[in-house]
Design a protein around this nucleic acid. Structure first.
Length: 152
DNA sequence: GCCAACGTTGGC
DNA sequence: GCCAACGTTGGC
């Protein structure tokens, strides 16, 4: 099982991750229950994910990251100064969680445009109509195919 | 539990 | 900035 995780590069890009100590950072700001549940229930330490740049001039896959922690409460939900502050979340019953990720490698940039042009990837979640989930599973087959394309 | 209104996402 | 698609909210 692999993953694809979206981030707006103006908020947090792959280069921002690269600059972090140990190239690690908490994946904060997820405020969707389905995406949260993927982190709390299905993600395992050591699993790999594509780092995807969204909501920008050129959306696409920018690199590969690794899950390096179990899910734990997202601190930004308790920070009134944060744009991710959630007044309905209580410290003794947190609503939102995050995992930590580590940069494995920055790859050749693979634009969404190119992903769309590959028929064998038509079942990729982010290519499906109306998909907005910020964290989606990627199958072994899809992962290997994309890796091959990036390497080529 | 239904569902209309509203807010957000994200590519274009 | 537009707008389709989808998630969340809250009155009933």
């Amino acid at each position: 099982m692999y993953w694809l995780m979206k981030s707006e590069p103006s908020e947090f890009s792959i280069d921002d991750l690269k600059r972090q100590p140990k190239r690690r950072a908490p994946w904060t700001g997820v405020r969707n229950y389905q995406a949260r549940n993927f982190m709390t229930r299905e993600m395992k330490i050591g699993q790999l994910a594509f780092f995807y740049h969204s909501s920008c001039a050129e959306p696409g896959i920018a690199g590969i990251i690794k899950i390096v922690s179990a899910a734990y409460p997202d601190e930004t939900q308790f920070d009134a100064q944060s744009e991710y502050f959630d007044p309905k979340s209580a410290t003794d019953d947190p609503r939102w969680f995050n995992v930590d990720v580590e940069l494995v490698k920055k790859t050749r940039f693979l634009p969404l445009r190119e992903l769309k042009s590959i028929p064998a990837l038509s079942d990729l979640h982010i290519l499906k109509r109306g998909n907005r989930l910020s964290i989606t599973p990627v199958s072994d087959r899809q992962w290997k195919l994309v890796e091959k394309i990036i390497a080529a």
